[in-house]
């Protein structure tokens, strides 16, 4: 039995996300629908989600695989959803872009950029008005591109003035689809905008899972204690393209290389190795365990049937 610790669990959590998304890329090469992967951003998902607990609710967006897996989603049901199968979390109606899993507290996933920001204050308001589990808070994940939407400011302003228990998590991965964010905003714009709204703001290295986790835990504790919202900006990088397939011909190779050198998984593995808590065999064992889970997940998903066309108009109205 290998040593277990939160740090190792975070490493394994990131390895699972990486293996899952690499599997999706491989499936895409075989003709499955494309997806938005979060390769390179695993520390954001794992660090923040591990700072939450079961009472909390999460809203996410098109790049949701990491958040869902970090929350304990079954990779088999996720792959089934991406492949449009009935055993997917949404019965095969979502595909990869808006996967919610209410049973895990991952609600209202929206692929309208900014949609998650528009709905999160309402989820937090319901929480504040006693409709959620006592003491719960809400975390909303969004990108640097979403911060350019007007509703970003509307959501921050409302959350501050209504003192909503809401953690804003901006994964600043430098890219807004095919546009580099520095073409659309000044370097420190996002945190400056957030500060202007008057809530606690932290900017953290989003490729260091321990730093992410520590900052998220602090902010979550503050929200639980004081009630009002907080803001976490995570500097990270989208290592793969926006949506598979994407040859990334538009990406500056030097920038990409610099960020690849700061890969969050390698960093966590090296940290644990340097501390004498992980050796090559231990890492290989983690990787093998993750690979086995993904292989089983794939088999499960591929065995699941497609929904019939007779279900086309099901779930339009309650």
């Amino acid at each position: 039995m290998a040593e277990t610790s939160p740090e190792l669990a975070r490493l394994e959590g990131m390895l699972l996300i990486r293996a899952y998304e690499e599997q999706l890329v491989a499936l895409h090469r075989d003709g499955a629908p494309g997806t938005c992967t979060s390769v390179g951003q695993e520390a954001c998902a794992v660090g923040v989600v591990q700072a939450l607990d079961g009472r909390d609710r999460i809203l996410t967006n098109h790049r949701s695989g990491g958040h869902l897996l970090a929350r304990g989603a079954d990779p088999g049901r996720l792959i089934a959803e991406v492949l449009g199968r009935v055993d997917g979390y949404c019965g095969g109606r979502s595909g990869s872009l808006h996967i919610s899993a209410a049973e895990l507290g991952v609600v209202l996933t929206s692929t309208i950029v900014g949609g998650e920001l528009s709905m999160a204050p309402g989820v937090a308001l319901a929480q504040k008005m006693g409709r959620g589990e006592p003491g719960g808070i809400v975390a909303v994940f969004f990108g640097d591109g979403a911060a350019c939407e007007g509703v970003f400011h509307e959501a921050l302003n409302l959350a501050v003035h209504w003192r909503l228990p809401l953690l804003f998590v901006c994964e600043n991965n430098q890219w807004q689809a095919y546009v580099h964010r520095l073409e659309t905003m000044s370097d420190r714009a996002i945190s400056a905008w957030a500060e202007g709204h008057g809530l606690p703001v932290r900017v953290v290295d989003g490729n260091d899972v321990e730093a992410v986790h520590g900052a998220a835990a602090d902010l979550v504790a503050g929200i639980r204690a004081q009630g009002g919202p907080a803001f976490l900006e995570l500097s990270t990088y989208r290592q793969r393209g926006h949506f598979e397939p994407d040859d990334q011909a538009y990406v500056d190779p030097a920038e990409c290389q610099a960020w690849l050198a700061r890969d969050p998984i390698r960093r966590q593995a090296e940290r644990l190795r340097a501390a004498g808590r992980l050796d090559a065999a231990g890492l290989a064992a983690l990787e093998a365990r993750v690979a086995a889970r993904i292989a089983a997940a794939l088999a499960f998903a591929q065995a699941s049937p497609m929904p019939g066309p007779d279900t086309l108009d099901r779930h339009v109205y309650a």
């Binding site: 979390y89 808006h98 919610s100 996933t109 929206s110």
Partner: peptide, 9 residues
């Protein structure tokens, strides 16, 4: 989002 989530909301 009710539809796309398979009736979850």
């Amino acid at each position: 989002l009710r539809y796309l989530s398979g009736g979850q909301f």
